[in-house]
């Protein structure tokens, strides 16, 4: 069987699998934000960067090839990841102490895992809206990282295309497919896959705020490197 080498570990893979899929199946955690095993790889967050034959590539969009020598925890890679994460924290409004998602937030957990202590970039404090028009959900764009997981889930699984990213570069932002742009005017519902896929606190269920106390949330109970490998991803 074909195999790749990730640091000191030899990992078998099926043809067509990406590096992150092969690693995940073997229980090797590669930090990531926009990748999710249920959806087509997006390759946009740049957190899952690994080094293949001396070159940095995203593990979610690079197919595993027999004999690949992959490094995934070098100081250089961790530094790249930390800076990517720092930029995400600096360009949105991520106030962990007052966020209902804290402790169950993938962005927070990945950044802690990567050893990010603070974002040393200039904080942008952008003006973004909070949409509370939906009966069961709040859409808080302050925390959105444009990973498009909700876009992919709503389009590919739910068949509704409720979400999209509009604009480019610094102006890129999450929009809702309704004439008035409000989530409450769409057929978005609790049963949608898109309702439970947000890795940050942007798509938040109403009525359950702080039902699970801080300290007992998913990443408090089981660290991200154990949750986000094959068969465990929520």
């Amino acid at each position: 069987m074909a195999s790749i080498q990730i640091d000191d570990k030899s990992i078998d893979f099926q043809p067509g699998q990406s590096i992150i899929q092969a690693a995940s199946n073997a229980g090797v955690y590669i930090p990531h934000l926009c990748y999710h095993p249920e959806f087509t790889a997006h390759g946009s967050c740049r957190v899952c960067m690994v080094e293949v034959n001396g070159r940095q590539v995203s593990a979610c969009t690079t197919e595993a090839q027999d004999g690949m020598q992959i490094s995934h925890m070098s100081d250089d890679l961790q530094q790249t990841r930390k800076q990517v994460l720092e930029m995400l924290f600096a360009e949105g409004n991520h106030v962990c102490p007052s966020c209902e998602k804290s402790g169950a937030c993938t962005l927070q957990s990945v950044a802690e895992y990567c050893g990010m202590l603070t974002a040393e970039f200039t904080f942008q404090y952008p003006q973004r809206e909070i949409d509370a028009s939906h009966e069961d959900f709040i859409l808080d764009k302050n925390r959105c990282i444009n990973c498009e997981l909700c876009v992919r889930a709503s389009r590919d699984i739910d068949g509704k295309s409720v979400f999209a990213i509009a604009g480019r570069g610094g102006q890129a932002q999450l929009i809702v497919n309704a004439v008035d742009g409000q989530l409450g005017s769409t057929d978005f519902s609790v049963q949608d896959r898109a309702a439970s896929v947000c890795p940050v606190g942007s798509i938040l269920p109403k009525h359950y705020g702080f039902v699970t106390p801080i300290g007992q949330r998913s990443f408090d109970l089981k660290p991200i490197e154990q949750q986000q490998v094959s068969g465990h991803e929520g």
Binding site: F89, V95, S98, L117, T118, A119, Y125, Q127
Partner: peptide
Amino acid sequence: ALNGGVPAMRNH
């Protein structure tokens, strides 16, 4: 101190 925290919520 690190990112403005709760006081910086007035920046909006």
